[in-house]
Write a protein that binds this DNA or RNA. Sequence first.
DNA 1: TAGATTGTTAATCGATTAACAATC
DNA 2: TAGATTGTTAATCGATTAACAATC
Lengths: 229, 229
Amino acid sequence: MSTRQAADKSKSVEDASPESITLPRPTLERLPAYYRVVAAAVKSGEAYIASSELGRRLQIDDAQVRRDLSCVWGKGRPGLGYKAVDLLHRLEDVLGFNNVTDAVLVGAGRLGLALCAYPGFRSYGIQIVAVFDADKNKIGKKLPGEGNAGRVILPVDKLGDLVRRLRIQLGIITVPEHEAQGVANTMVEAGIRAIWNFAPVSLTVPSDVVVRNEDLAIGLATLQHYLTK
Amino acid sequence: MSTRQAADKSKSVEDASPESITLPRPTLERLPAYYRVVAAAVKSGEAYIASSELGRRLQIDDAQVRRDLSCVWGKGRPGLGYKAVDLLHRLEDVLGFNNVTDAVLVGAGRLGLALCAYPGFRSYGIQIVAVFDADKNKIGKKLPGEGNAGRVILPVDKLGDLVRRLRIQLGIITVPEHEAQGVANTMVEAGIRAIWNFAPVSLTVPSDVVVRNEDLAIGLATLQHYLTK
DNA sequence: TAGATTGTTAATCGATTAACAATC
DNA sequence: TAGATTGTTAATCGATTAACAATC
């Protein structure tokens, strides 16, 4: 079966920049943390930051930090560390925070609206351009959040059309479990390339569409297991 | 430094049941998915379910499924598969869905309130007994959600007291980045044993406290990286 | 120069996959 | 019994850690 679950498999990820780099998934998943620490360092005026310092702040082995950074940059200066501003820009590049990606969100429940009101997305290069729901009572209601003045919830049957028309690449799913696969199908048909899925189901999609499952049950189960050990 | 990040390290997890079982973290993190599929199977009347069928529905290798299940149960019947009801109960046990764990939530923003309104927690054995916020304007406001009639947001300076008094073991953090460590400190001081952290920071806690970071930036960055490849 | 820190090679560790004898 | 599927051993794969020569 032709399905790719970005969150599950640790396949390496190709990058099409000049020299096409390959990032192990664990490395890719640590980059946002490095990004935040380096951003803080830059803000507080530190010119260079060493792998040992980065590691200390994130509780990651310093050899691990160097290995990770060598994948994305490899321009640290022995004796000094990494030039903070440059590293920051490099991380932004690799993580795609510079490009703005338009996204649609389906499922205007509490979680969906919480996400759509979150201002932080902007700094990660994501912009939610439309929010859909199947519930007639919700349609036409205003979206919460600073940047959303005047915008309203749209009927889900316009989803495919809008995705096609605006060539949206990213879809966010915050609908109940049993509606998720249907929404995913519509998204895929309309040409979406990546899905951020908050519904607790394993979606089936073609192999050229990436799915990231944000399954909160995993976190809960992990902690519950530990507490009841 | 004495810190343990449940979400990061793949240390094995001890279980104190009769024969103390050890689960690799990747295995533990797949169990909730097995749980859901098995629950669905039971509901639709299937008496037995085979590793190949479980794997097919979750896009996991069947040998992987058998290996995982042998850690938690090892009572599959060759030729038939696993008895669905029994496997379900075993998974509930291991995941701690039977014990009810009381939890507090700090940070009554949209995300916090979305979590506290989520009815699904009950089925995972989690009960949020109190919600706190530092914002005076929010204190006293009603909690959203079915089961929350009559309950209100409490001032965060009562957090330590309540945790101590009710011997709460699990804390959920949905405050902004710069408040998260402070909240974590209060929780730890008051005797909390596990923290579910939604703030995008690496918390520092004693080694006997487990932290699960639910960092949404990781998902976003992963997808962005893929889309801008 | 002397001290510090990099990038990388080699060693270790752990998880996934393949294969198959055991068994329902 | 014959067919199917388990549990587990061995082989593979990939990530982490240790160590150190290169270099600022």
